[in-house]
Amino acid sequence: MNHLPQAWGRPRDDVYGAYDHSHFQTQLPNQHTQSPIVTGTSVVAAKFKDGVVIAADNLASYGSLARFTDVKRLRKFNDEVVVGFGGDVSDMQYLDRLLNSLDIRENYSNNENPLHAKNLHTYLAKVMYKRRSDFDPLWNHLLVTGLDGEKKPFLASVDLLGTTFSSPTLATGFGAHLAQPILRRTIPDEDAVANVSQEEAVKLVQECMKVLFYRDARSMDKYSIAVITTSGVELKQDEKLENQSWAFAERIRGYGTQVN
């Protein structure tokens, strides 16, 4: 035993080497999320003439491992807002609880004007920007969908840096590369929205989910889809991709029967 009390009860440096005090975190800065752990992939959404469609698959990956296969990544906030989450699942759960407490506080008084999608987007943007400014980001990319203050379709995104933008169609993650071009083919601009029916929009988004399942290795064929209109939110969380056709693979080297 050593006569210095500082050394008591600690691993002996001569045996174990100096103790890594960053584990002890006395004066060091807090360790924040530096990378996501369990993640969800793309979220896709599109406006149509009287509402918005949003979809995300039900997979949460742990790196390349398909870890959880029934994860619901669309959250209904109230009768006119749905938020879709891509990125870290634990941060999504934190945001879910945050929205829960916000909703509870909103309903203390019998509110005539409930928070609409635009309000919620502004709120979430400020939360995300604050956390990135504290170097403690919430590792998510969110799509906020629903109706704005004038009951018009609303669709906008926020990412882990607090960057916000709005567009008639949006897709996060891999979907920004694969789904967005497909969506833009039908809905190139805000004017085109008025010509798209709910059925068309749903089919379009389902088509995107299929393409994403074909080509995004971190995706799956079970997904959630929500339609938000003035008559409320229709959220289905146990959908499966139908009419898959791998015929296109025939022509691709390495996929089909072609060997060389």
């Binding site: 210095l4 009390p5 500082q6 050394a7 440096d13 001569d14 103790y19 005090h21 002890f24 006395t26």
Partner: peptide, 13 residues
């Protein structure tokens, strides 16, 4: 007390 390195110039180890 738990600041890490042993006291300056102090032996003990």
């Amino acid at each position: 007390i738990f600041s890490g390195a042993p006291p300056q110039g102090g032996p003990g180890y």
